[in-house]
């Protein structure tokens, strides 16, 4: 464990806390894409299959349980909670995310470390996580103004993978046989997708203005 990875995991956890705070405090999920939340739940379920078979560390197990539980709780909240589900922007959240699931699964069948179910699902979860934010970014562009908590949620979600890139560079330099190409390339693509959001987020922070994404 190195400081970059710890910072990445904490930033990831922070993004989930900010999202839960927004939904709980405002009893509203306006501006949040249910499709992105469903994709994240799928990412964690596909990636943490080894939760009960391989024990890495207490930290690792606790974080996996927290990520799976929180992502399922958010999907449940947005689909079934009587008060929250009313504020879901159903007509704006129209990204065809099934194409993302299909495309990344086919890619995982072709590009994986080993042609075993667990490895294919792991690669699938890595590719899917890279594109999972797209429905959310499209929804933000459509809904025009972005409320602070939602903006912070997306920002922390992008920042966590940027920390992971520093972690992979650090591990590549310090550990003789460390190669994690699938996660590395996918993580760079994932962080790249946030680039334009980061740019507008920085501009809005500098001008102390409301975050607005161009349509």
């Amino acid at each position: 464990m190195n400081i970059f990875r710890l910072a990445g995991d904490m930033t990831h956890l922070l993004s989930i806390i900010v999202l839960l705070l927004k939904i709980y405090a405002t009893k509203s999920c306006s501006g949040i894409s249910l499709k992105t939340q469903e994709l994240y739940a799928l990412v964690f379920l596909a990636r943490y299959l080894d939760l009960f078979t391989d024990f890495i560390s207490v930290y690792n197990t606790i974080m996996k349980v927290v990520f799976i539980a929180s992502s399922l709780a958010i999907v449940w909240c947005m689909r079934l909670h009587p008060l929250v589900k009313r504020s879901y922007d159903k007509e704006l959240d129209t990204f065809r995310h099934y194409f993302l699931i299909g495309g990344t699964f086919v890619l995982a069948l072709v590009l994986n470390e080993k042609f075993t179910l667990q490895e294919i699902l792991w690669a699938f979860s890595i590719y899917l996580e890279a594109v999972a934010i797209l429905p959310q970014l499209v929804l933000l562009q459509r809904s025009g103004n972005v409320d602070n908590l939602t903006g912070q949620y997306v920002f922390f979600l992008g920042a966590y993978r940027a920390f992971y890139i520093l972690n992979w560079i650090y591990r590549y330099l310090t550990e003789p046989r460390f190669t994690r190409w699938i996660a590395c390339v996918s993580g760079i693509v994932q962080t790249g997708i946030y680039a334009d959001f980061f740019y507008y987020y920085f501009i809005s922070w500098k001008n102390n203005s409301k975050l607005k994404l161009p349509a």
Partner: peptide
């Protein structure tokens, strides 16, 4: 046996 790269990252 090539030791499996343990997926220790989240």
């Amino acid at each position: 046996v090539q030791n499996e790269v343990v997926k220790d990252e989240l």
